[in-house]
């Protein structure tokens, strides 16, 4: 099951040129870029691990691609996303965040029903991938 989180997630996967164009848009808006990765696809898992350092003062998307490629090399089977942070006073939030790499196979989620008193049922979702320990979740 294809994870749809962040911007552009209903579009086909981005090529490097697409990513560069989006990064250029961030740089034009003076948004520092950061790269994050994770192997826990749960939608409430908002704090992914930061790759290297946030990138301030970059002029060209090539710098971001350089780091992104290093990250892809280190975590070939993780989710990787690129964030653009708008630091302007009054906003100070992530302005753009999109997935640039996903595992080859995404097993998806199962629904879990928890029986409660008075016939109440509580629902939750559970990612199949998280059954395995961190770092080994998407290895085949």
């Amino acid at each position: 099951m294809r994870i749809t989180q962040g911007t552009f997630s209903y579009l086909p996967d981005f090529t490097d040129d697409d990513i560069k164009a989006q990064v250029q848009y961030c740089l034009d808006n003076d948004w520092p870029i950061s790269i994050e990765y994770t192997d826990d696809p749960h939608p409430r898992n908002v704090y992914w691990d930061l790759w290297d350092l946030p990138m301030f003062d970059m002029k060209d998307p090539a710098a971001v691609m350089f780091e992104l490629n290093r990250c892809r090399e280190a975590f070939p089977n993780h989710y990787v996303r690129v964030n653009g942070y708008d630091r302007r006073f009054g906003r100070q939030t992530t302005a753009l965040s999109f997935i640039v790499q996903r595992p080859k196979e995404e097993p998806g989620f199962r629904v879990e029903r928890q029986e409660f008193e008075d016939r109440v049922v509580k629902y939750t979702i559970h990612a199949y991938a998280t059954d395995r320990p961190e770092g080994m979740r998407y290895e085949s």
Binding site: D52, L53, M55, D57, M58, K59, D60, P61, A62, A63, F66, E67
Partner: peptide, 14 residues
């Protein structure tokens, strides 16, 4: 390495 990398990244495109 990180220090050099930082400068190199800043210079990219220039």
């Amino acid at each position: 390495a990180p220090k050099t990398k930082e400068i190199v990244k800043k210079a990219m495109g220039g």
